[in-house]
């Protein structure tokens, strides 16, 4: 087995002072050095909460109930904001969905990259600034010397996201968490940003945790995929396995509901939907949380939560996993 650089074990996050209202219901996974792990799911599944927990950026309204997050073998002090400041950017970088929100509108973008470097490393100004220009060049921004002095509102969404990526990678972190990095961007810009991330990964060996709802992105950029549903890990597998032989009915439903022009004729012009909606986090149901929306659900599913099954690199939590290959 490869070398896990980030390891999350049985992470439970609840609404503050309400241990019965769980947002994450015990999630475990790991990220290997240099790989891309995609975390996929719909809103409310807990994927963003997972990334915020790793960064020690949990909102005030929630708290960690149990579980550990280990980075290179040692536990991250996620509740200690001061200690986490040393980890952020230096060891784990983060890219957000809204690049505009991640940047301060009052400072030139180059200064903001510089600030990240100076926060973590003692460097003479000139060397740090040279590093800023180097970073902006690496993320393919045109005329980095001039662009470094531009204010955020002068740049396009794609350029801003490149600046944010430069900031996230400024101190050579080992892991980069990208939370819906391209959702706010046009599809052509999305491709450029994903290509950039993959190229930077190839050059620096950074591991990427890609949080997304877009299965198309996953298919072409991730090594492994973790599918989440309503605070649980539903399935985890190498990308190819997950797309070709998904075991969990939610994964299957998600794949079928995703428009795919190459399969459109087979579907007769209509998409296959998953009926119903995600259960409320306050719903105390004891069984599988997907059971109310699942076509194969039995009494067992409604009564007991399925324990994870591991088959090599493929894991899933389902009493009645699908077995046939999906073509």
């Amino acid at each position: 087995m490869a070398n896990p650089i980030l390891q999350v074990e049985n992470l439970q996050i609840c609404v503050r002072k309400k241990p019965g209202v769980l947002i994450l219901r015990g999630v475990s996974f790991h990220v290997n050095a240099g790989e891309t792990l995609a975390i996929v799911g719909e809103s409310g599944c807990g994927k963003s909460m997972t990334s915020l927990a790793i960064m020690g950026l949990l909102p005030d309204a929630v708290e960690k109930l149990s579980g550990t997050i280990r980075f290179k073998g040692r536990e991250l002090p996620i509740a200690d904001n001061r200690a986490m400041r040393k980890v952020r950017a230096a060891e784990i970088g983060m890219v957000f969905q809204e690049p505009m929100a991640a940047l301060d509108p009052l400072y030139p973008v180059g200064k903001q990259v510089l600030e990240v470097i100076e926060e973590h490393e003692k460097l003479p100004r000139e060397m740090a600034w040279a590093r800023v220009i180097d970073l902006l060049t690496k993320v393919d921004l045109p005329n980095p010397e001039t662009l470094a002095w531009s204010y955020p509102h002068k740049l396009s969404g794609g350029q801003l996201q490149r600046v944010v990526i430069a900031m996230a990678l400024a101190c050579n972190p080992d892991v980069l968490i990208a939370d819906e990095p391209t959702t706010a961007l046009d599809v052509t810009v999305q491709a450029q940003i994903m290509r950039l991330l993959k190229r930077l990964q190839r050059d620096t060996g950074v591991a990427i945790v890609l949080i997304t709802h877009n299965l198309g992105l996953v298919a072409h950029t991730a090594d492994r995929v973790m599918v989440m549903y309503a605070g649980n890990k539903a399935e985890e597998a190498p990308t190819r396995d997950l797309f070709l032989s998904p075991r969990h009915p939610y994964t299957r439903g998600l794949l079928d509901a995703t428009p795919n022009p190459e399969r459109a004729s087979a579907q007769g012009g209509v998409l296959r939907e998953i009926p119903g909606t995600v259960p409320s986090i306050a719903d105390p149901m004891s069984g599988c949380r997907f059971a109310p929306r699942c076509g194969n659900a039995s009494e067992l599913c409604r009564a007991r939560f399925p324990e994870p099954t591991i088959e090599g690199a493929h894991g899933y939590a389902c009493h009645h996993p699908g077995t046939d290959a999906r073509v």
């Binding site: 599809v187 491709a191 190839r202 298919a219 797309f243 795919n260 190459e262």
Partner: peptide, 20 residues
Amino acid sequence: MIDAIPVPDVTRPPPPAFRI
């Protein structure tokens, strides 16, 4: 645009705009 659209299908090669 079509070259940049990621089709959710692992059996096909990635769209041209995704190649490093």
